[in-house]
Design a protein around this nucleic acid. Structure first.
Length: 246
DNA sequence: ATGTCGGTGTCTCACCGA
């Protein structure tokens, strides 16, 4: 499915989340045949993140967050690619709430916020891309009242996402489509896709030095109809060249 | 509260996390 999507849409740079496989099982050769270099940070069964590029080499800058609450979980990978610092992240789900998994989510989120501040202070053009497991506002969930106590919509989690935006990050999709209903995820159960009972939990946050280059953003919803598909749909942005060229 | 999916080990079903 990933290979079909890459071949059809030819994105320049891709981040992947939930590889759910140890490093040796990463399909590096198949991706190379499609023209993509890759770095990856896998883990058996759970988590796992990767960065792909067909526009130049990938210079890894970090794997795992500073003071990562659990370095055994592969949730963060960061690299310089084609003049942009790209972070692939997979924020913990956090359910059930309350409980240790929710505490872990908050701890991880706090370390991300700290590191995001460091990145902003550097002035570099940065995109934080991945599954944040947060619906930022009521507009980002099909039935907000049903999700009030869920770890993906809890006040503690939404406030942390808001803290990121207050730091200076731009939520790409919401910035270009302020009033639109946009979802990136539909549960496998409850017939969620057919009912369009979706969530917007996959985000691309841009640093102030990169945000002016944002020209388009969207979700490739059609992949959700494919056989054996993911419960997430590819979420993308288009950036202008640094000099303003298309 | 419920539901679906894929992976794993308890191993041809039961469980877990998402």
């Amino acid at each position: 499915m990933l290979q079909r999507w890459l071949a059809e849409t030819e994105p320049d740079i891709v981040t992947l989340q939930e590889l759910k496989a140890p490093d040796p099982r990463f399909p590096a050769e198949a991706l190379a045949q499609l023209g993509y270099q890759a770095i990856w940070h896998g883990q058996k069964s759970w988590n796992g993140v990767a960065i792909l590029s067909r526009v130049g080499s990938i210079h890894e800058t970090r794997r795992g967050l500073p003071d990562d609450p659990d370095p055994a979980q592969s949730r963060y990978l960061e690299a310089a690619v084609n003049g942009v610092l790209v972070a692939a992240l997979y924020l913990p789900n956090g359910n059930p709430r309350p409980g240790p998994k929710f505490d872990y989510k908050l701890a991880w989120f706090d370390r991300l916020i700290d590191h995001a501040a460091t990145l902003l202070a550097s002035g570099a053009p940065v995109v934080l891309a991945g599954d944040f497991n947060v619906m930022p506002t009521d507009r980002d969930v099909y039935k907000p009242e049903r999700w009030q106590n869920d770890a993906l919509f809890a006040p503690e989690v939404r406030s942390r996402y808001a803290d990121l935006l207050t730091q200076g990050w731009t939520d790409s999709l919401r910035h270009l489509h302020p009033d639109e209903t946009i979802y990136t995820f539909w549960d496998y159960f409850r017939n969620a896709w057919a009912r369009n009972a979706g969530l917007r939990i996959d985000h691309l946050l841009l640093s102030p030095s990169l945000a002016p280059r944002l020209v388009a953003a969207g979700v490739d919803r059609e992949t959700r109809n494919w056989e054996k598909t993911s419960d997430h749909a590819p979420t993308w942005i288009e950036l202008a060249e640094p000099d303003g060229a298309p």
